[in-house]
């Protein structure tokens, strides 16, 4: 499978969950396992562009797929992406454990919806639990990221 643009080939036991494969076999420990029953969303990654729970998918099922994780979000020069930067600016993370899932969910959503409103983002984020922030700063970060992405696009046009 390809993860963040790099190709990996491994033999794995069929029961190996994708989240464990990423973390243990590929040492991509940025994706977190928070509940292993598909509720908390900390393990959210993008597979072929779609967000999903990597604790509810076996690694073998991602054979040949293109996977994106938090490790692949930063810009090529290592600087933070707009969304990451907005999390930083708005204090959108405290302990940081749910953050990979939050970022991946919003990454997918902002790719598809350039002009989200607050309620829409709150609904999208119901798939990701956070115990530290009360979500407010995460929602603000998402809204600000959308604004900045639009501004960047307009500037480029």
């Amino acid at each position: 499978m390809s993860v963040n643009g790099r190709t990996y080939e491994r033999d794995v036991e069929p029961r190996m969950l994708l989240v464990d494969f990423l973390r243990q076999d590929l040492d991509l420990t940025g994706t977190h396992a928070g509940c292993e029953h598909g509720v908390c969303g900390a393990c959210t990654v993008l597979v072929n562009g779609r967000s999903l729970r990597s604790c509810l998918m076996f690694a073998v099922q991602a054979n040949g797929a293109s996977v994106e994780t938090i490790e692949g979000l930063a810009n090529a020069d290592g600087s933070l992406s707009i969304l990451q930067e907005c999390f930083h600016d708005h204090h959108g993370l405290q302990c940081g454990f749910c953050t990979p899932g939050m970022l991946m969910t919003l990454t997918e959503h902002l790719r598809e919806n350039a002009t989200p409103d607050e309620q829409e983002l709150r609904v999208v984020l119901t798939g990701n639990l956070c115990r530290c922030t009360g979500y407010q700063a995460i929602v603000e970060a998402g809204l600000d990221a959308a604004r900045r992405m639009r501004a960047k696009k307009e500037a480029a046009e």
Binding site: G38, R50, S51, L52, L56, M57, T105, H109, G127
Partner: peptide, 9 residues
Amino acid sequence: VGHRQTRNR
């Protein structure tokens, strides 16, 4: 039905 991530799959 669930959330965006579960409906995706």
